[in-house]
Design a protein around this nucleic acid. Structure first.
Length: 390
RNA sequence: GGAGGGGUGGCCGAGCGGUCAAUGGCAGCAGACUGUAAAUCUGCCGACGAAAGUCUACGUAAGUUCAAAUCUUACCCCCUCCA
C-alpha cells in the first residue's frame, strides 16, 4: 500500500530515535522539521534558499489551497511540487486545524483561555466542516473525502487524514465526541485514500483525545489499527508546557513504533528536544518563519539577551548598535552577510529584505538544530545539545 | 497693494465654550506569536509620581467668561488667489 515509502529506524537507545523516511521526493533524515508554506509558499523564501538552508521538507495546507486557487487548478499546473518549484518532499495538512483556528479564534488566545475573535468562520457537522471562506465569503463544505481528493490533486508526498483539532476549552465529553468523530472522519479519509491509491502518496492518521490519558490511549490504538503510514499527534496539548509533554507521552507511549510519528504544530526549541525524547520523528510549526516576519531571530543560549527567550527581538533599540551577526557561529547567508544593526535598521525602515533575511536564519537555525540532534542521538548525548541550544 | 485660508503634543491631522492632557494616523518604547484569516496583533507614548494627583501645554500677547485649543483684539509667521 505504501510501496514507495518506507520508514527505517536506524538507532533508538532510549525513546528518541534516528530514522530515514523514504519518499518519492527524497529521503528524510529524522527527526526533522517541516516548514510551513501554508498557501503554497514558505513566506518570502525561494526554494533554493530553503534547500541551501538544509530544508528537507515543507508543507502546504489543504483548506487554504482549496479556497484559493483550488486544487484542480494546481493539479492542472502539474501538482504542487511543479507549481511551486520545489522538488523536495512535501506534506499537506488536511484542513482540520482550520476548523479550530477559524472556528474558535486565534490559537494562542484559545490555548490561554482568552478567546478574542467572535466571528466564527467554521462549524462542524457529521459529514464535515462548513467554512465561510475568508477569501471570497462563499460557504464551503470540507469533508474527509474532499480533503483527501484535494490532497491527491495537490500531490504532496505525505498527507494527513481529515480531523478536528480539538480546542483546549471543551470538557471531556466534547473532547470524546470530537475524537470519535475524528476517528470516523479518519476512516473515511483512509477509505477515500485507498480507492485511488497510486502509491505516490502516504497517509497519516491523527491522534486526538485532548488532555485525557484514556482518550489519547484509545485514539492512539485506533490509529495503530488503521492502515495509516504514519501517525500525527494533534488537537490541544494542554495549557502548559509540562502538560504538553505529558499529553505527547500519552500518545507516543501507545503508538506503533514502526511508523513515523509526527507532532502537529509544535516548534519551540525546548519543546522539540523534549518531544524527541518522547519519541517524535517530525515536527511542523509556523513559529520559526512567523516570528522572523515579526523581527524575531532564533538564537542559541549564548546569544540570548536579557529577555532570555529562544529568540531575540531585533526590533529592540539595543540592536541598533550591534555590529555582529545574529549568531557569529551561524553559517546561514544572513549571518554571513548582515549585522544585527543592519537587520534592525531594515525592520525599522520596513524593508522586505529584513523579513526574508531573518527567515533564512531561522530556517537554517532549525535545520542545524535538527542536524545536531540527529548526530547526538547516534552518540546518545542529547544533553549536550540541550546545553548548547536550550 | 487687495481678497481669503491657516498656525494643535517629535511629525501629519481632528477638535471649534465646559465631559480636553486634547480623536486618528505615523514615528518611538516594549510585549505576544507553536498543524499561518499573521510583513500580524496588544500595551505604553507631555513632565513628575507606584498611585491618587500635581504642574506645564493647542503661534505670541492682552482680553471676554464661573469656565477658552475653541470667542474678541493686536502682533508674528505660513499658504492660495487677484493686481
Amino acid at each position: 500500500m505504501y510501496r514507495n515509502f518506507k520508514f527505517e529506524v536506524i538507532s533508538s537507545g532510549s525513546k528518541s530515535r534516528l530514522g530515514i523516511l523514504r519518499t518519492p521526493h527524497g529521503d528524510l533524515q529524522t527527526p526533522t522539521f517541516i516548514f510551513c508554506g501554508t498557501k503554497a509558499s514558505v513566506k518570502g523564501m525561494f526554494p533554493e534558499q530553503l534547500k541551501k538552508a538544509g530544508t528537507q521538507i515543507i508543507l502546504a495546507n489543504t483548506y487554504h489551497l482549496f479556497s484559493h486557487p483550488g486544487s484542480e487548478y494546481i493539479k492542472n499546473r502539474g501538482g504542487l511540487h511543479k507549481f511551486i518549484g520545489w522538488n523536495g518532499a512535501m506534506l499537506t495538512d488536511s484542513g482540520g486545524f482550520q476548523i479550530f483556528s477559524l472556528g474558535h479564534g486565534s490559537v494562542s488566545n484559545e490555548i490561554k483561555g482568552k478567546r478574542s475573535r467572535v466571528s466564527m468562520l467554521a462549524r462542524i457537522e457529521e459529514d464535515g466542516a462548513v467554512f465561510k471562506s475568508y477569501w471570497d465569503g462563499s460557504t464551503q463544505l470540507l469533508t474527509p473525502e474532499k480533503s483527501v481528493k484535494i490532497q491527491r490533486d495537490l500531490g504532496a508526498d505525505l498527507m494527513v487524514a481529515f480531523d478536528e483539532c480539538t480546542p483546549y476549552h471543551g470538557n471531556k465529553k466534547y473532547t470524546e465526541e470530537s475524537m470519535e468523530r475524528s476517528h470516523r472522519w479518519e476512516k473515511r479519509s483512509l477509505e477515500e485514500f485507498e480507492r485511488n491509491n497510486d502509491f505516490s502518496q502516504a497517509l497519516y492518521g491523527v491522534v486526538q483525545g485532548g488532555i485525557y490519558a484514556d482518550l489519547r490511549k484509545r485514539s492512539a490504538h485506533f490509529v495503530n489499527e488503521q492502515s495509516f503510514f504514519g501517525a500525527a499527534i494533534g488537537g490541544t496539548l494542554g495549557g502548559s508546557k509540562e502538560q504538553m509533554y505529558e499529553v505527547v507521552e500519552m500518545a507516543t507511549g501507545e503508538l506503533n513504533s514502526s511508523r513515523p510519528i509526527h507532532l502537529l504544530g509544535i516548534g519551540g526549541i525546548s519543546d522539540i528536544l523534549r518531544c524527541i525524547e518522547l519519541g517524535i520523528d517530525s515536527f511542523d510549526c509556523v513559529h520559526p518563519t512567523r516570528i522572523a516576519r515579526h523581527g524575531g531571530a532564533l538564537v542559541k543560549r549564548v546569544y540570548r539577551d536579557a529577555a532570555d527567550r529562544e529568540h531575540i527581538n531585533l526590533k529592540r533599540a539595543q540592536y541598533s548598535v550591534e555590529d555582529d551577526p545574529i549568531e557569529s557561529d551561524c553559517d546561514c547567508v544572513t549571518c554571513q552577510t548582515f549585522s544585527r544593526a543592519y537587520l534592525h535598521y531594515l525592520l525599522k525602515a520596513n524593508e522586505l529584505l529584513a523579513l526574508s533575511a531573518i527567515a533564512v536564519h531561522n530556517i537554517r537555525f532549525m535545520n542545524r538544530f535538527m542536524e545536531e540532534i540527529r548526530v547526538a542521538i547516534a552518540h546518545d548525548n542529547l544533553n549536550e545539545v540541550r546545553k548548547k541550544w536550550v
